[in-house]
Design a protein around this nucleic acid. Structure first.
Lengths: 210, 210
DNA sequence: CATTTTTACCTAACGGCGTTAGCAAAGGTA
DNA sequence: TACCTTTGCTAACGCCGTTAGGTAAAAATG
């Protein structure tokens, strides 16, 4: 598959077309998979349904992905990239680190509830195994960004490195925890503006006590 | 199955034995299922393996549970009961609400990491669908207990009901969030005592700022 | 006792799943 | 033309949750 055709010369145009086609198929599979997940949830995503949707037979999928988990993994990376893009925008928009931190929190919250399927996949909420297992460097995307902001806020005050690190995790935890609790319907508060207010208040208080 | 046999009288002894046997089978199924989950994880739990383990044929399971999800649901309730028992003990042991709150946090943390399979099931971490969907009153077990403690701490200070409610959720969130992040290996901190220290510090700071 | 109802339990199947082996057709090369 | 490579397929394997339908034992009834 896409090898240089024995010891022969390769016609570059054809090879490039093939690579292009192959990548097309790959992205088609991913987008079809994502659509299916958005429509019916992770649980009902199946290789066979993907094959159906792209109008190819099942084994074709395995020419592009090692297995089902690889597809989910790739989708989760897309999720991290999507989140990161907005975080980067925040960095340019908010020079004040406290404002930046607030914006990051807002971004994280909105991302989770606008793209619950991504969020669940990325952080293993209600997912069959996909959070656990593979360790992704992308996991730390958010921690990295809020870390910068918190460092910016904290730098003028007396506080050692460990304390700052702890605060970063505490901040991330409260956000992720609240999102999880709301998303998994563990909370008895249905009102989404109410939940948002809890988030805002908590973030506010957190920043004040940095 | 176990109906009063038409319009006839029932021999109570026999009926009782039957009920006893039926309940025995039910608990056997549950304990076998739990064992399997502890051994191989949620993903590989299957009705057929349970049937194998209890040395009955597959349909027998369906005489006792509506479906696989019902078994998982029942197990999650066991988890909530197990957690609640320790929380109740704390209530008797710590009259000071601040001490009580700290003890509750410790209990919650220990419960999660000593019984990760329960915790994951109860709060839908890395689970196929079992957190979402059914809403369990037991979900609020922990929130109820920390609510009492926080109310105890806060009652002498000026703070309205909403603020207190928010603080309860914030406290729960930071705990659940930290546990989730650690359990799902999203954190880059491997050292468990380090993670525990983050929890302790955050709890300490939280109580101080109540 | 014999008879009839109820129970417990099983076999076998249905439709779905992820994954893979093996083959046929199509495309490019010489 | 003949030859390789690539593409894509059919068909299968071994799982899974769930259910229909049957059988033989047990219990209740007369």
């Amino acid at each position: 598959m896409l090898t240089p055709l024995g010891k022969n010369e390769i016609k570059m145009g054809i090879l490039e077309r093939r690579i292009r086609q192959k990548e097309n198929m790959r992205t088609t599979i991913l987008s079809v998979a994502l659509q299916q997940v958005k429509d019916e949830g992770w649980q009902s995503l199946s290789i066979r349904k993907i094959a159906d949707a792209i109008e190819y037979s099942v084994p074709v999928i395995y020419d592009h992905f090692e297995n089902k988990e690889a597809i989910l993994f790739e989708l989760s990376l897309d999720g991290f990239r999507l989140l990161e893009r907005t975080l980067e925008k925040n960095k340019k928009k908010y020079p004040d680190p406290a404002e930046l931190l607030k914006a990051h929190a807002e971004t994280y919250w909105n991302f989770a509830f606008k793209n619950p399927e991504y969020y669940q996949l990325m952080y293993g909420l209600g997912m069959p195994c996909c959070g656990a297992g593979k360790i992704k460097p992308e996991f730390n995307t958010f921690r990295k960004h809020i870390g910068e902001a918190i460092n910016g806020i904290v730098q003028n005050k007396k506080s050692n490195e460990d304390e700052t690190c702890f605060k970063i995790y505490a901040f991330w935890s409260v956000l992720h925890g609240l999102i999880s609790i709301v998303m998994m319907r563990c909370s008895d508060i249905d009102d989404s503006t109410m939940n948002k207010k809890i988030m805002d208040d908590t973030v506010e208080a957190f920043i004040k006590n940095l």
